[in-house]
């Protein structure tokens, strides 16, 4: 058995051992081990991908949330502004209406006052004329109470009326 010459017996046994070992290990060990490792690797890969997707979704949701909040704030501001505008409008309209109404009322009142004044003056005039007549009649009655007086007045007027 030289150091450098292969010994057929050992070559035979090595071949046999190696081939049998390969066949048994492949069936008994390598397949389950490699499958398990592959399963784990794929699981980790999928988990990482899932986590990434989840993170992305979360980021999207967060962005959306911000958008919604922003939108809400914008809408609120708009509503408030609109309300303020509406309020101002209403107030303005109310004022205008009030002004018009007031003017109308004033006008009416004025007219009524004028009318009433006229009526009152007319009434007073009538009253006065009545009173004057009354007084005049009373005065006449008193003036013409005596015959002398009557004669005197007639005379005086007759005198005044010179028959020219």
């Amino acid at each position: 058995m030289g150091l450098l010459t292969p010994d057929p017996g050992l070559v035979f046994w090595t071949t046999l051992t190696f081939v049998i070992l390969l066949l048994i290990l492949r069936k008994v060990a390598w397949k389950p081990i490699l499958r398990a490792i592959k399963v784990r690797q794929e699981y980790i890969q999928f988990s990482l991908r899932d986590a990434e997707t989840a993170q992305e979704t979360l980021a999207q949701i967060s962005v959306k949330q911000k958008e919604i909040i922003e939108e809400g704030r914008r809408q609120r501001d708009e509503i408030i502004r609109e309300a303020r505008d509406l309020k101002n409008e209403i107030i303005r309209e109310a004022k205008e209406t009030a002004q018009v109404e007031a003017t109308r009322i004033i006008q009416q009142t004025h007219e009524q006052m004028v009318r009433e004044k006229k009526e009152a003056i007319l009434a007073i005039k009538q009253q006065i004329s009545m009173l004057s007549l009354d007084i005049a009649s009373k005065i006449l009655r008193e003036e013409l109470a005596t015959n002398e007086r009557q004669k005197y007045i007639i005379n005086r007027h007759l005198q005044e009326v010179s028959l020219n």
Binding site: I20, L21, I24, V28, A29, P32, R35, A36, R40
Partner: peptide
């Protein structure tokens, strides 16, 4: 060869029993 069978057979049993995860 027998040692290899024992070691790797044992390891493979572990993987089969407990699963890869």
């Amino acid at each position: 060869a027998i040692l290899l069978l024992l070691i790797f057979g044992q390891a493979a049993r572990g993987y089969i029993k407990r699963g890869g995860l």
